[in-house]
Amino acid sequence: MSLKREIGFLLNGVETHATVPVDLSALSMLRDLLGLTGTKYACGEGECGACTIVVDGVSTCSCLQFAVDCDGRTLTTIEGVAGDPLGAKIEQAFVDCGAVQCGFCTPGMVVQAKHFLETHPQPTRDEIKRGIEGNLCRCTGYVKIIDAIEAASRADR
């Protein structure tokens, strides 16, 4: 059995505690220990972005993040995205623009979009494409996802 550590962190605005094996990924902690299944496993090596979360204000692949290293930090997952107006706007834009098909890449895409728009409030379409280059989607061909992020950036804040 792996060594375990007790850690505490702010998760979607809520003080959260967990006891985690030190070799566990943040993705497994979120899904298996904390029951937050919105964050998806799709590759486990940082190549697809389906597990994107925000840690201390920057987006990262939770499959690469050691859970134990979340200690004392601030995490936002898809479940917490709609908690602020920009996040809610992005989710709505994904719905309205047809950016969702099978939906499996969508949570990671939405979380990444939020981080991206926070750092690029008035992006061009090419900047949006670069912003989501780490998020794979097999259904949509990305066009409607780019539309949605663009629409969310234009909507009144």
């Binding site: 919105g38 997952t77 479940e79 989710e91 047809g98 950016a99 939906g103």
Partner: peptide
């Protein structure tokens, strides 16, 4: 018309439960 998918709100919010979930 341009009609949003019925299942999109759940999916965009990460609330859809796939078999993995």
């Amino acid at each position: 018309k341009r009609i949003a998918k019925l299942d999109a709100p759940e999916k965009a919010a990460g609330m859809t439960r796939y078999v993995h979930d």
